[in-house]
């Protein structure tokens, strides 16, 4: 078990700055996701923590010990790779035992640890098999068991579920959460899938363009995105952003008046699609619905609000026709106000 301090890490590949002064502290036993689109630098950061990549500058401390100049094996961590990297020429048992063998653990300890990890991941029936005989999900379990068998202080996971099909991914996600909670290992989890990050993490660090845009609990990040990017990246459908003129510190949206943290000019309001309610006829904020999609659990409306593209969600019990205009009531407590220039959000109103 160990805490991790990422201190001003910079990484350049030639002229390209992959990471621009990234800092993040992860507490002992915490599960933190690095969430961001491909190419944002999240995998590079993970590989720097692992020691597979060298940082241009900055420091990494694991358990209050600087590890930046140590090779991976001396950092006290284990890693699960995106394509599993389960050794095809070794049985499942030898795969899980690999880290322990490298530590020159005696056979009794190897056996005990392998059985424990295999039990956690439910792979005992396959211990004598070779990985090519296993499905993707089973191989992923082997990879996680191999990592947990060494009882690492820190567990690094690089998109571990992205090669699985949707149903299996959901199943593994739930199981990972159970297993990792039981193990209590400090975990850094890289993903581009916001539902994975939301579902698994204690905290999410949203990475964009080589920077961490926001760190917070899933609910914080979802409800109060620090930037327009975070709001747009997290949530399905993404947050709607609608630009409004401000007059006298207030904004009139439909028939509602809102006090805003700006006195004049323009402001952007960020609207989560599921926070609206359908207003009685002729009231509220008008939305011109282009397409109405009944999704079973809810009704997804795509169209425009005040001439700007928007997606909102209504209860499945509502019926809306394509081309119809519906009135929406907004919940002032669940709106996010953002600066149109910087894209940064104003602090949430108390």
């Amino acid at each position: 078990m160990a805490n991790i301090v990422i201190d001003n890490i910079k990484k350049s590949f030639g002229a390209f700055q992959a990471l621009k002064e990234v800092s993040l502290t992860i507490n002992d036993g915490e599960f933190v996701s690095l969430l961001g689109p491909s190419g944002c630098g999240k995998t590079t950061l993970l590989r720097i923590i692992a020691g597979l990549e060298t940082a241009t500058s900055g420091d990494i401390r694991i358990g209050d010990r600087s590890v930046i100049s140590l090779p991976p094996k001396d950092r006290g961590l284990a890693m699960v790779f995106q394509n599993y990297a389960v050794f095809p020429h070794m049985t499942v048992y030898e795969n899980v035992a690999f880290g322990l063998r490298m530590q020159k653990a005696d056979d009794a300890r190897v056996k005990k640890q392998v059985e424990k990890a295999a039990g956690l991941l439910h792979i005992e029936p396959y211990l004598d098999r070779y990985p090519n005989k296993l499905s993707g999900g089973q191989r992923q379990r082997v990879a996680v068991a191999r990592a947990l068998a060494v009882e690492p202080g820190v567990l690094l996971m690089d998109e571990p579920l992205s090669n699985l099909d949707a149903l299996l991914r959901l199943e593994m996600r739930t199981e990972l959460k159970t297993v990792l909670q039981a193990a209590g290992t400090t975990t850094i989890y890289v993903t581009h899938d916001q539902t994975e990050a939301m579902g698994l993490s204690d905290r999410i660090a949203v990475v964009h363009d080589g920077r961490i845009e926001q760190v917070g609990t899933p609910v914080e990040v979802y409800n109060h995105p620090a930037t327009r990017f975070v709001g747009g990246f997290i949530g399905n459908p993404p947050m709607n952003f609608i630009t409004m003129p401000v007059t006298g510190g207030k904004v009139a949206i439909g028939s509602q008046q809102f006090a805003v943290p700006a006195t004049g000019g323009e402001i952007v309001f960020g609207l989560r699609g599921e926070t609206v309610e359908r207003a009685p006829n002729g009231q509220g904020l008008d939305m011109q619905v282009r397409v109405a999609e009944p999704m079973g659990s809810h009704l997804l409306l795509t169209g425009s609000i005040l001439g700007q593209p928007a997606r909102v969600i209504l209860p499945a019990t509502e019926t809306v026709r394509n081309g119809e205009t519906v009135g929406l009531t907004l919940d002032p407590k669940r709106l996010t106000w953002l600066s149109p220039e910087s894209g940064a959000s104003y602090p949430a109103a108390a």
């Binding site: 597979l52 094996k73 890693m79 394509n83 990297a85 191999r146």
Partner: peptide
């Protein structure tokens, strides 16, 4: 990734060569 995984789990360059690369 095979070599990187071996490196993470503590295999020396020579062990990585003999136990991972050569068999593969």
């Amino acid at each position: 990734e095979f070599k990187e995984a071996a490196e993470i789990f503590g295999a020396s360059p020579w062990t990585r060569f003999t136990r991972i690369t050569l068999p593969l």
